[in-house]
Amino acid sequence: MINYTIHRLIMMIPVFILCSMIIFLILHLVPGNPVDNLLRPGSPPEAREQLIIEFGLDRPIHQQYIIWLKNIFQGNMGFSITEQRNVSELLLLKLPNTVALGVVSFLISFILGILLGALSAIKQNTIVDYGGMVFALLGVSVPTFWLGLMLMLIFSVNLGWFPISGYGDLKSLVLPAFTLGLAGAGLIARVTRASMLEIAQKDYIAIVRAKGISNTQVIIKHIFRNALIPIITLLGLRLGWIIGGAVTVEIVFNRPGLGRLLANSLFRRDYPVIQGALLLLIFAVMVGNLIADILYAYADPRIRYN
């Protein structure tokens, strides 16, 4: 178990370094110099040259990468080109909003999804099952941003229960978190249902039933627990999905978070911020995948990777 964890941790390093290289390279292939956004029209070319030297954009690309990587390991992610601020400072400022949104919607999607999936599996081929699966199918098919718009239209514009946009208090978190959570719950419900139905057909469940254990106990102790294994793999995958979804949800609800910062910086070609935000988000996805893999190996004793 410990060996496996260490092995996975070591394997993460080259992937992360490659990711950082790709992020760095890709953004330097973007046409247009970010300095141009800073200059007032009609300013002398010397000012432009000076800015380029100031930001180190005149050096060869591999030197820029090494300097950038060195600085990151020292906790310095550079200086935002458009907002006069340290990138790490800027990211830390926006991080809590995104973390709150991510954690709450993650919980909503898993609790709702697992409950719905389990209920559908137990009441297979009844109206409950059909209802649950229609919901799940819609959850997979509805674009997240449209769901956000509709929730906003119903609960903010018509009913006036929640603020249309903004951040800070809990009330403003409800709609964005439910948007992401509901959209994510569909897939989890489907996986839970399929996995529970598959386990229920296994011979060992028939043995357990033959021993005379009550139905509730069979479902909770034997079927549900074994059905959790594929759901655990989803944990890691969904984290990446939620981070991607946070970009659109934050834009729809005008929430200042990492996703919106990233999208805005992409428009403004603010390299240091894009690189910093991407690196942070991808690191989060990789850690999520790692945790899911370890949990997976822990939950299923048959799995021991070498």
């Binding site: 080259p14 979804g245 990233l262 992409l266």
Partner: peptide, 21 residues
């Protein structure tokens, strides 16, 4: 390794970056 690296990028982010380029 290439697939692992691509897999780490959420699809929306990846496509956003590509379109930005």
């Amino acid at each position: 390794v290439l697939m692992d690296v691509m897999w780490a990028f959420p699809t929306i982010l990846l496509s956003l970056i590509i379109v930005a380029i």
